[in-house]
């Protein structure tokens, strides 16, 4: 394993293309060090420490967007006024990450690049239609993940920032997560629901579920069904069934597929009952 420390974007642009090894970026290290310890990092890998790359550690705002630097730690996101105003789900999700120590180290970019279906920040990014910006392209969050632990990123391609388009409408947001204990626990299932309301009428709804498939799943058919109907018990029951058909949970050491389905149904019902 080789190691390189880089502190500016210019250095990345000049140095990284020369490297032929498999590259792992060290951002917060909260996942990478676990992988190293497990022995799942290739012997000839190049670890590039970008933890001091200050250019990627800010939260900015334009009239239409929030721009979050990839190396912004979760504790900063959790306490950001701007994010809390425009994307409260992301704040809630950030607060539920790992433990205080993990939130101080772990970064949004790292959580995305790691591509775990249980990544806490991901459902929030899905319902906000976030855009992931690398040094060479912009990718919609919906096109970013290929499979569990697999993304469209090429070797050495680095996430620069995450763009969250602002929504200028009254929002109601719900985030649920089931975990075996209060901190440092992978979620068994999570659900993010973002509803846009105008004159007490539901204008739009976006729903994304975590840890119930190889990637986070945006459940479009469920969203459309809800939008087409007035919410009542019958519609909720039907929506739950559509939701179940859109996710594909597995049984692993964290939970059973059956339990994951049950809990997602309950979360959806909770959100829908609290919508009006």
């Amino acid at each position: 394993m080789e190691f390189l420390k880089i502190t500016t974007l210019t250095q990345i642009i000049s140095e990284v293309p020369k490297i032929k090894n498999r590259i792992y970026y060290l951002a917060g290290g909260t996942d990478l060090f676990v992988k190293i310890k497990e022995g799942s990092i290739q012997e000839n890998a190049m670890i590039i420490d970008i933890s001091d790359l200050k250019e990627l550690k800010s939260i900015k705002e334009t009239p239409a967007e929030i721009i979050i630097g990839a190396l912004t730690p979760f504790s900063q996101i959790a306490h950001s006024f701007v994010i809390n105003f425009h994307a409260p789900l992301l704040c809630q999700a950030a607060k539920s990450v790992g433990s205080l120590q993990i939130r101080n180290r772990g970064t949004l970019g790292g959580n995305i690049a790691n591509a775990s279906p249980a990544g806490d920040s991901l459902p929030a990014l899905f319902v906000h239609d976030a855009i992931i910006v690398t040094l060479k392209r912009r990718i919609s969050v919906h096109d970013f993940f290929i499979n569990a632990k697999k993304t469209v990123l090429e070797n050495g391609e680095i996430i620069k920032e995450i763009i969250i388009p602002k929504i200028n409408m009254k929002k109601k947001a719900f985030f649920y997560k089931s975990a075996p204990r209060e901190a440092l626990a992978l979620s068994k299932a999570s659900l993010a629901v973002l509803a846009m309301v105008k004159n007490k009428k539901l204008e739009d709804i976006k729903i994304a579920a975590g840890a119930v498939g190889p990637t986070v799943i945006r459940t479009l058919r469920t969203e459309q069904f809800i939008l087409r109907n007035q919410i009542n018990s019958d519609v909720i029951a039907k929506a739950k069934n559509i939701m179940i058909s859109e996710i594909c949970p597995i049984t692993d050491i964290c939970s059973t597929d059956q339990y994951r389905r049950e809990i997602i149904k309950f979360y959806l019902e909770e959100a829908l009952r609290n919508l009006p």
């Binding site: 676990v34 075996p180 204990r181 209060e182 901190a183 440092l184 050491i253």
Partner: peptide
């Protein structure tokens, strides 16, 4: 303890063998 069908312990670490902590 979670075993596979061959008697291997699948959660032999603190990430997967959950122990209650102070917040709990």
């Amino acid at each position: 303890f979670i075993f596979d069908k061959d008697g291997r312990l699948l959660n032999a670490d603190f990430s997967n063998y959950k122990v209650y902590m102070t917040p709990d």
